[in-house]
Write a protein that binds this DNA or RNA. Structure first.
Lengths: 175, 175, 175, 175
DNA sequence: TATGAATGAGGTTTCATTCAT
DNA sequence: CATGAATGAAACCTCATTCAT
């Protein structure tokens, strides 16, 4: 992950992966049939970790608005604290190296989030829109904020994070 | 652009670019010192085109809210109608192949948008937030909506587009 | 060495080296970072061999004049018996492919010869001249004689060799 | 000549020759059928110039020994004052790029020198040796002295030059 | 006669993968 | 199960030469 985050999928040969991980090329190929499988495996691991991070300290008892902001901020905090994961995942999400199957599997990790949005719509907290569209709008704001930090153009403070979460909430909430 | 959008930066050799463009490898290297320069040049061209598309039919006379939605929807329409540009640009924006210089140059194309946001804040149409952060939030919603269409998961209709633009506006507007 | 001696540094691609040596290109690059390093390594090996050959059967007990002729003739014999080494080294000694470092390292192989000349000057067998100049004059006569044989213009016999060594000695000796 | 002397035959493309000479590639190919012909032509020009330089201020009236030293020193002076010619010629003399025909033609430029040596042998000034061998021994001492200067290891002064010429004479003279 | 953009074969080098140890 | 040297196809790039202008 480190190598790919830093140098790009493009510029990360197996030989470097072997060297950095201190595992010989032969051994890597003992556990993974090829480079593609290795990357896909890592991709799924990280997607899972990121999806899980969203629900840290989640408490179904607290008001919907607060839960919304918790999830949004959890996700952002995670990506900002693990910038390599962001960089790695963003590269993979575009690359044809990631199989359709892996993409579908990773989509399943979003089921809890999917349910959370559905709940918001049903309870009339959120605008009645296509759930996929809402999910993508939320995801878009989180990732673009994280990338802003990553780019070095702006140091995202607690205030920035809270304001951005509020923007996302204000955009999607009803009334 | 087509080849890279389809196959990825990774999987687009100069030989293919040469074949598809019907220009011999030698000729390409007559105009560009190397592959990197070629990609950077194309990247800047497309960034310019995308930045310009945002202000199509822009009329300073119409109300701020309408101009906001026009720019947002113009941008989305452009990316949806030219999905290859989206795919190409997204890959480049991550890749270390794009030089820091090109990134800075492309950032300058956003000056009009920057001014537009500044105007909104000064006129108290928009929340008082860091301009870069606002820009990234807007950009994030546009790109993630366009990617949703690109992924094939949802066909973005006019209604979807207008709703999404409204979400972005509601999130950023004051009151 | 054979390929370069025959075809020239210029006209010896790695693919030929790979084929003639029956070692795949990849393997060569496993041991040498690039062609330059490979040539430099070979250059140093041969320089060492040539320098060592000069002192074959060297006996410090015999008179200075005889030792001088032994070294001179040893060197010539070696170059004539291994014409590829001569051709290879002569090409390298001019080419910018050979690094300054390699040239300095190879110069160190001449230390024994340097000492031998110094001894001759101190003992008043040789004219009092700059040691580097003497070394180059000796080297010049040896190499040009070897090249004469290599060119095919004259078959260097034992008599020729002894006469040429005597010319060199007569030129440098005192009295 | 400048480019090849500095960078090597190997690393001097026609495009550079075109640029440095301010003559377009097309024009060069209008006058020379190919690169080889261009280099061969230049080689012969320089060989002629070097051969002619040897006999500057030559006066058949002066004693043989003085004429010998004049020719030797003229040659060295020329090579030292035009180090690019030395570098260029030395590279060509090895390269297979120079045709056999050009080498034979250039050998004819040495006719006066050949005659001068023959005179020395007949008049019993010089040892009775093969003329080619004598020529090569003389040439070897001149070139190796010039290369010593070129290498930067020793600045060849007038004293060095005269001493070296004397070494060559002492080696070849009778008695 | 002069130009220089265009060509494409061939150069050096990289890297995913294999396999004998 | 672990190693890493070996492979060779394919990547990027160069350059002698041509030819329409």
């Amino acid at each position: 992950m480190e190598l790919i985050a830093e140098n790009g999928l493009h510029a990360t040969p197996m030989s470097q992966i072997s060297k950095r991980s201190k595992v010989s090329a032969g051994t890597i190929y003992h556990y993974f049939p090829n480079k593609e499988a290795l990357i896909n495996h890592l991709y799924l691991d990280l997607k899972k970790e990121i999806a899980d991070a969203a629900f840290r300290d989640y408490d179904i008892q607290v008001p919907y608005h607060e839960r919304f902001c918790l999830i949004w901020q959890n996700s952002l905090k995670h990506l900002i604290s693990k910038p390599m994961q962001l960089s790695f995942i963003e590269q993979c999400s575009i690359s044809p190296l990631i199989s359709q199957e892996a993409k579908e599997t990773s989509a399943r990790y979003l089921a809890p989030l999917f349910g959370f949005i559905a709940e918001g719509i049903e309870s009339s907290y959120l605008k009645k829109m296509d759930i996929q569209l809402i999910l993508h709008l939320i995801h878009g704001t989180i990732v673009s904020t994280a990338k802003l930090q990553l780019s070095g153009l702006l140091e995202i403070t607690d205030e920035h994070r809270e304001a951005a979460a509020q923007v996302c909430w204000d955009g999607l909430k009803i009334g």
